Amino acid sequence: MPRLSEVIAALDALWPPSRAEQWDAVGTVCGDPGAEIRRVLFAVDPVREIADEAIELGAQLIVAHHPLYLRGTTTVAADHFKGRVVHDLIKNDIALHVAHTNADTADPGVSDALAGALDLRVTGPLVPDPSDPSGRRGLGRICELEHPETLAAFAERAAQRLPATAQGIRLAGDPDAVVRRVAVSGGSGDSLFDTVRAAGVDAFLTADLRHHPVSEATQQSPLGLVDAAHWATEWPWCELAAAQLDEISDRHGWNLRVHVSHTVTDPWSSRFSSPGAPN
Rank of each mutant, 00 (worst) to 15 (best):
T150K: 02
A241T: 13
A166C: 00
D112F: 01
E49W: 07
P133V: 07
L171S: 05
N255T: 14
T233I: 11
F154P: 00
D176P: 05
H230R: 09
P16F: 04
H259D: 13
L68K: 02
V29G: 13
V26T: 12
E239F: 01
S274P: 14
A35Q: 03
G140P: 00
Q220F: 13
L120A: 03
S134C: 08
L41P: 05
E49K: 08
G173I: 00
L61Y: 03
G224P: 14
L256C: 12
I50T: 11
R39T: 12
W268Q: 09
D250K: 06
G124P: 04
A207D: 07
A25L: 02
S111E: 09
G200F: 06
A43V: 06
G135C: 10
G168M: 04
A172V: 06
F42I: 05
E239C: 05
A43K: 00
V201R: 10
R181H: 09
T150I: 09
G31Q: 00
R197W: 00
G173T: 11
L70C: 02
A217Q: 15
A78N: 01
L192I: 02
H230K: 07
H97N: 04
S134D: 11
G186D: 04
I50L: 08
L114Y: 01
V226R: 05
I94C: 01
D88E: 13
S261K: 07
L240W: 11
H100S: 09
S221D: 10
P2C: 07
Q167R: 08
P128H: 07
R170L: 10
L162H: 07
T233D: 01
E146F: 02
Q244E: 14
G27W: 04
T150F: 14
G124A: 13
R161Q: 13
